[in-house]
């Protein structure tokens, strides 16, 4: 099953609707609630990032019995330093975004923590593609029961073409 969403860039109040829809579909399919929550959080963070930094984009959820693959793609300014962006607390979001409850510098770390695999393909001026994979046939379960993420972003492939 493939679900495709357009994430509008101009209306912050709409941000998160695609993630909410995916969560509902996964619940209808009987997916483990812990995995659903992880998918919802990872996708929501990516969706919010697209709205904040890139003026929106597209989100695609591919759901099979084995896994959920969430791909969020935008044509925004890209991420100049991915290692820096993966650090907890690092944020380039403007003050008005913090007033709306985001920009804590937890978005990418939250995506990593809640994904089984995360890859980010981004370069300045070329936009960003985030791919989040959650396995449905493994131990799954909630993020509380999973090992703490390693200092190096395990499961995160270096972005292709990232500027030096």
């Amino acid at each position: 099953m493939t679900l495709t969403f357009t994430v509008p860039g101009g209306d912050f109040n709409q941000a998160g609707r695609a993630s909410g829809e995916v969560k509902k579909v996964l619940a209808r399919l009987g997916v483990d609630p812990g995995i659903i929550k992880r998918a919802a959080v990872a996708m929501y963070e990516a969706e919010i990032n697209m709205v904040i930094h890139a003026g929106g984009g597209t989100a695609v959820a591919e759901i099979s019995p084995e896994r959920v693959v969430l791909t969020l793609e935008d044509t925004g300014p890209g991420i100049p330093d991915l290692d820096l962006a993966m650090r907890e607390g690092y944020s380039t979001a403007p003050e008005w975004i913090r007033e709306l409850g985001f920009g804590a510098g937890m978005g990418l770390p939250n995506m990593r923590r809640n994904s089984d695999e995360l890859s980010i393909d981004s370069a300045p001026g070329r936009g960003t593609r985030v791919t989040i994979v959650l396995r449905l046939d493994g131990e799954g379960a909630s993020v509380e029961n999973r090992a703490a993420p390693a200092a190096a972003p395990a499961g995160t492939s270096p972005a292709e073409g990232v500027a030096p």
Partner: peptide, 23 residues
């Protein structure tokens, strides 16, 4: 900050917040 909520929240929790918006 909602990303902090997503990073730390547990099951059966009450959320206290000063953020009053749809997010």
């Amino acid at each position: 900050l909602m990303s902090d909520v997503m990073a730390f929240v547990k099951e059966k929790v009450v959320l206290l917040t000063g953020l009053v918006n749809p997010q």
